[in-house]
Design a protein around this nucleic acid. Structure first.
Length: 796
DNA sequence: GCCTGGTCTCTACCC
DNA sequence: ACGGGTAGAGACCAGGCG
């Protein structure tokens, strides 16, 4: 039984601990035959690099470092190694320590030694070091030679193995193991505003699993001791691989942890029996399982404006709002205390867990592919910001290419010029094609070899023919050899091509197809984020000249493209960054595409053709009618989250009437009707709520803004608000500034308080006139109610 | 003291 | 804690008016 064997496993989580002065890597996973396993590797040691100053001999420095370390904690090894730093070959001293805690100690000690230029790679967590060095991929399959061990008998796994050699990744991403997923949500008793764990019990924990279980765990009146124990027991019994929730990192887990501590209950939900623990990027780590907060992913979906669980579930078609029970957060305790209403609360809680589970089904396949690609574990990848996701990917690549990973350093923010936006030709245009460059910035970075390691400062320029010189800004980049960004982005684009090739062997409705599709999406997202990353001052591979040159070439490209279009007789209506809107002429457009390819080595593709498109004179705001009758609204009030629904609706309807029917009269009639309805109180309250986000702490605001005063009123009423939350308010009648008349809709006692005049003058009319004034309509004309002539009607 | 115009702050958008 | 470019509303404030 204890003979060595090779097993195949899917990597779920990674961690480490020091056991008997030996660091032990733990790889948590699932095997092909559906066993939960942990693989221990005690052979790996932490290390970092010391980079000598240019004129310092590595041998001398090595001796000095050894002398410096003498008498301190033993260092396992110090060796001079050949590495590259920003593409340049360098000698570095690799320092291998006994345990991870030695690394920061020696980093601090060595960085002060004379002759040391820098200490590198001393800030990488030990298990991440392991993942990078062996190129493991979380959420992917690996092969590993192991032998069983009797260690850690009390852990909740089917088997514990010792690795006889490091695992090897398997390059097939089309399959997933049979995972156990658990979604949960907690409800707290909150008669005194926001619940506090040292005061208010948890009353319901709703649980839904992917194996068809639905549980409603409840408190005994106001005693939640058994409830929490039941929850812990259920997790142990079901033994989930993935635990999902909505906003669990900021609410459920901290609350459960605090509450358990207060009650003296052990929240041992992990596979080692430990409690969830706060970890990197503000997420909670549950040993051996992946704790995923779906909110992290929803946060990035800017198309969902108000990100409450019920809104998101509604938006994603998981649980339509009109088909579920909605209970106001502040009312929960009332339902709990009222025997006749308690069952409604229970149903509500279950629907929350079901919604959460539904979101997980939509999000997890992508999250897993992102995790696999960038190398962050599933529970971390969502919590990490875009910049860090890109960075982890780059760090893996740097390792493969023997490049030293630069340190994260603080730098001043220096702004630079971005893209060009053309002033549109205002009014209505017919038959307009939109063409845009595919991945313009990534391709420019490849074509011009733009990278920190190919950048050459002006004083070092010799023969200009050896460099690509950026227009306007004059930054120079070596043509050869290929720079870091070029190598990385090229690889990503090729990778994506290969995945898309691979997809062809599967039916579009198959699981394999879905997985690969999510994977190619993840690859595209990372490739496209490289430019932004390069211009981020917090990036390890930051260089302003890189970002600045990329946009400069982008500007030149689009300028030349516009010129080319005109030369070919295409009328250019508008352009933004990497797109051109031209009067559609099939032959000319085909010629144009070919010419662009020849001239710039970049691909421009027709994205869509508008039957009709309307532009105001403002940039970034227009509206187009598509051949299938759909309407694209871009930038205008109708698509902004900070206008009252009623105003957005009016604008959208006007655009539709104008683009489809060409009748200004009807549009004006429509606006008048809505104003009538509003005055007579026929418009539902939801449609006049204005939602705005809090971008900072309330005390930090410099001017009195409406949503801030509304937020303060919410706070006084006992609501809890955080940065990023959306505040919904209405404007009420009365004296003073607008900001002082903003009232949280939730606290509104009487609809009579609402200032309808504000909604007419400052919401509906501006939104309507934004469009209608281009057709000769004025505010007075709408308000006077005079019948219009058909003067402004057109086409039919 | 009120009005006006310019500037600043703030949000959310586009690509 | 990935980039810059942009519109538009409202707050704020200085200056003009008389």
């Amino acid at each position: 039984m204890s003979e060595p064997r090779t097993i195949t496993f899917w990597l779920l989580d990674a961690s480490y601990d020091v056991v008997g002065n030996v660091p032990e890597i733990r790889l948590w996973g699932l095997t092909e035959d559906n066993q939960r396993v942990v693989i221990l590797d005690r052979s790996f040691r932490p290390y970092f690099y010391v980079l000598p100053e240019e004129n310092v001999s590595p041998e001398n420095l090595l001796r000095r470092l050894k002398a410096e370390a003498h008498g301190k904690r033993p260092i396992l090894d110090m060796t001079i190694v050949d590495k590259k730093f920003f593409g340049r070959p360098v000698k570095a001293i690799k320092v291998t320590c006994q345990v991870p805690a030695d690394v920061p100690e020696y980093r601090e000690l060595f960085r002060r030694v004379v002759g040391v230029q820098d200490v590198l790679e001393a800030d990488i967590r030990f298990y991440m070091r392991y993942i990078i060095d062996h190129q493991l991929r979380p959420c992917s399959w690996h092969e590993v030679k192991v032998k069983p061990t009797t260690k850690h008998k009390n852990w909740q796994v089917d088997a514990v193995y010792e690795a006889l050699e490091p695992p090897k990744p398997i390059e097939d991403y089309s399959k997933l193991p049979d995972l156990r997923t658990l979604a949960f949500d907690i409800e707290c008793y909150n008669p005194r505003g926001s619940p506090k764990p040292e005061r208010d019990p948890i009353i319901i924990i709703s649980v839904v699993t992917n194996k068809g279980e639905k549980r409603l765990l409840t408190a005994k009146d106001h005693n939640d001791v058994l409830l929490i124990k039941e929850f812990v027991d259920f997790i142990k019994e079901f033994d989930p691989d993935i635990i999902v929730g909505y906003n669990t990192n900021r609410f459920d887990w901290p609350y459960l942890i605090e509450r358990s501590r207060y009650l003296g209950i052990s929240l041992s939900v992990s596979r080692t029996g430990s409690s969830p623990a706060p970890s990197v990027y503000g997420h909670y780590s549950i040993m051996g399982r992946a704790n995923v907060d779906l909110y992290d992913f929803i946060e990035e979906m800017t198309e969902i404006k108000v990100k409450t669980l019920e809104n998101v579930a509604d938006y994603l078609g998981i649980m339509p709002k009109d088909k579920r029970i909605l209970i106001e957060g502040t009312e929960i305790y009332k339902y709990w205390d009222d025997a006749s209403r308690r069952k409604n609360l229970l149903e509500y809680a279950l629907q929350d867990a079901l919604s959460t589970y539904g979101i997980a089904e939509k999000i997890l396949p992508f999250a897993m592919q992102l995790s696999s690609l960038v190398g962050l574990t599933l529970d971390q990848v969502g919590a990490a910001s875009v910049g860090f996701r890109v960075e982890w990917y780059l760090m893996r690549e740097a390792f493969l290419q023997n490049e030293l990973i630069p340190n994260r350093i603080e730098r001043p923010y220096v702004p630079y010029k971005g893209a060009i936006v053309l002033k549109p030709k205002k009014g209505i245009h017919e038959n307009i094609a939109v063409l845009d460059f595919s991945s313009m910035y990534p391709n420019i970075m490849i074509n011009k070899n733009i990278s920190p390691d190919t950048y050459v400062p002006p004083e070092e320029i010799d023969d200009p023919s050896k460099y690509n010189i950026a227009p306007e800004v004059g930054h120079a980049f070596r043509k050869e050899p290929p720079g870091f960004y070029k190598r990385v982005i090229t690889k990503l684009l090729e990778f994506r091509k290969r995945i898309r090739e691979n997809m062809k062997q599967y039916r579009p409705d198959s699981i394999e197809y879905r997985i690969l599709d999510e994977r190619q999406r993840a690859v595209k997202i990372i490739a496209n984020a490289c430019y932004g990353y390069a211009g981020w001052v917090g990036a390890r591979w930051y260089r302003r000249e890189v970002a600045e040159a990329t946009t400069a070439w982008g500007r030149e490209t689009i300028k030349q493209t516009i010129k080319l279009a005109k030369e070919l007789g295409l009328e250019v209506i508008y352009s933004d960054t990497d797109s051109v809107f031209v009067k559609y002429d099939k032959n000319k457009v085909e010629k144009f595409i070919k010419a662009v390819k020849e001239k710039f080595g970049l691909e421009i593709k027709p994205d869509k053709v508008y039957v009709r498109v309307f532009f105001t004179e403002a940039k970034k705001r227009y509206c187009g009618l598509l051949p299938d009758g759909r309407i694209d609204v871009v930038g205008l009030e109708a698509v902004r989250g900070d206008w009252a629904e009623i105003a957005k609706e009016v604008q959208e309807k006007i655009l539709e009437i104008i683009l489809k029917e060409g009748s200004v009269d009807r549009a004006v009639e429509y606006v008048r009707k809505v104003i009538e309805n509003l005055k007579s109180g026929k418009v539902p309250l939801e449609k006049i709520i204005i939602w705005k986000s809090l971008s900072k702490d309330l005390r930090e605001y410099e001017v009195r803004a409406a949503h801030v005063t509304a937020a303060k009123r919410l706070l006084e009423a006992g609501y809890r608000l955080e940065v990023g939350d959306k505040v919904g308010y209405v404007i009420i009648k009365g004296p003073g500034r607008l900001a002082d008349r903003a009232w949280p809709y939730i606290l509104l006692k009487d609809r009579k308080m609402i200032d309808y005049n504000y909604y007419i003058e400052r919401q509906i009319l501006p939104a309507a006139l934004r469009i209608l004034r281009y057709f000769g309509i004025t505010e007075n004309l709408i308000l006077s109610g005079k019948r219009q002539t058909t003067l402004f009607d057109f086409f039919g």
